[in-house]
């Protein structure tokens, strides 16, 4: 029986993973765009990205574009797999196979 992924299930982390999974495999989102898309605050978003990074679900790259620091977040293969399983579990629950 499939289980919901506790790390992904938190609402903001679910949005972060959904946003990153909407991109091609190697593509990432800049922190500022992720913030706009999820409607989160800087601190909140940073904390949840850290949780996802610790679980190995996202990778975080920090670089300088000109003189500006830019953080890019990308879903890892592990994260994409976990997200796909999480979505499948949600669909199973809706279909009445669980819960």
């Amino acid at each position: 029986m499939a289980e919901l992924d506790d790390i992904i299930h938190q609402p903001l982390r679910l949005k972060i993973m959904a946003a990153l999974n909407a991109l091609p495999a190697a593509a990432g989102l800049e922190f500022a765009r992720l913030k706009k898309l999820t409607g989160a605050t800087d601190g909140n978003l940073g904390a949840h990205i850290e949780t996802l990074a610790k679980a190995g679900y996202v990778s975080v790259d920090k670089a300088f574009v000109g003189k500006k620091p830019q953080t890019t977040v990308t879903a890892t293969a592990t994260g994409r797999g976990a997200f796909a399983r999480h979505v499948a579990t949600l669909q199973e629950i809706i279909a009445g196979k669980q819960g």
Binding site: L14, K15, A19, L37, T38, L90, Q91, I93, I94, G99
Partner: peptide, 26 residues
């Protein structure tokens, strides 16, 4: 474990986020 309504809400959140990402890219 969550119920069917919560799962539906979560999927709706996912779909909405995906739609916003695609629109943002465009």
């Amino acid at each position: 474990m969550i119920d069917s309504k919560q799962a539906t809400d979560a999927l709706a959140d996912i779909n909405d986020t995906v739609r916003r990402v695609r629109q943002s890219q465009i």
